[in-house]
């Protein structure tokens, strides 16, 4: 599904290398988790995959189902099936949440050669999915993320993901800012999307989310590289001992 080879990324504006050769292969239907110290490059990797400006890819490749991601515009990557749940979802005053969602869903359908969802159909689907995430109708009417609490913003990300039905979901610290119950809701939302084909990359600092969303593989990123990969037990190790031992191993 997602194949990243020796990905090297720096900043466009200044001479700073952030990703220093990342390798990652996520197969169809798999769930991978990435953990790692603050500033190790996890969000940068997710942004570069989604096509955010300001970064310069200085080496390596990233493909989604054999298609080169790095050559595409952000909207083309989305239409190809990539979705990024932002660590910090953006507030957009003046753009209604509902209008935004519908525009996005229909734009992707159009890019794939499908017909628009009618307003009625769309409303029905969105209401059902919002309800499962305990997002009330009032929040849907408000401008995108404006005045949403931290947890509400994260749930809104999962709602968008549920509506867009991507193939490859990247979740950047979707658990941070969530209370215990909301974390369960979000995890249920994610698990509901697991169908054996859809793949997930879950960036997190905490083992707790991984109790709910069971990963197949856990990676540790440090200083712009994956320094270790293993099974779910790796997350437990980090939870108990921190990164010191792992960092010492590779040093």
């Amino acid at each position: 599904m997602l194949n990243i080879k020796n990905l090297q990324v720096g900043l466009e504006e200044e001479d700073k290398q952030i990703l220093k050769g990342v390798d990652l292969n996520i197969g169809e239907g798999e769930v991978h988790a990435i953990m790692g110290p603050n500033g190790s490059g996890k969000s940068t990797m997710s942004y570069v995959l989604a096509g955010k400006g300001g970064y310069e890819v200085t080496g390596g490749t990233a493909t989604l189902n054999e298609v080169d991601l790095l050559e595409m515009e952000p909207e083309e990557r989305a239409a190809a099936g990539l979705f990024l749940a932002f660590q910090y979802p953006v507030e957009i005053p003046g753009v209604g949440n509902m209008t935004f969602l519908r525009t996005a869903v229909n734009a992707q359908r159009k890019a794939r050669g499908e017909d628009d969802l009618s307003a009625g159909e769309f409303l029905k689907v969105v209401r059902a999915k919002a309800k499962a995430l305990k997002i009330d109708a009032d929040m849907l009417k408000r401008p995108v993320n404006v005045g949403f609490s931290g947890g509400e913003k994260k749930r809104n990300e999962i709602l968008q993901m549920a509506m867009l039905e991507p193939k490859m979901c990247v979740l950047d610290e979707t658990d941070s800012g969530l209370d215990v119950d909301a974390m369960k809701l979000v995890a249920e939302g994610v698990n509901a999307l697991r169908d054996g084909k859809r793949s997930f990359l879950v960036i997190t600092h905490y083992q707790r989310l991984l109790d709910h969303i069971k990963p197949d593989v856990v990676h540790i990123m440090a200083d712009g590289k994956i320094i270790k990969s293993g099974g779910p037990e790796l997350a437990l190790e980090v939870e108990n001992n921190g990164y010191a031992d792992l960092l010492a191993e590779v040093a």
Binding site: G53, E75, A79, V90, F100, A107
Partner: peptide, 14 residues
């Protein structure tokens, strides 16, 4: 730019 990226990352053409 951040708002523009957010919208396009959801598939809305630029």
């Amino acid at each position: 730019d951040d708002a523009l990226f957010y919208l396009t990352s959801r598939g809305v053409p630029k």
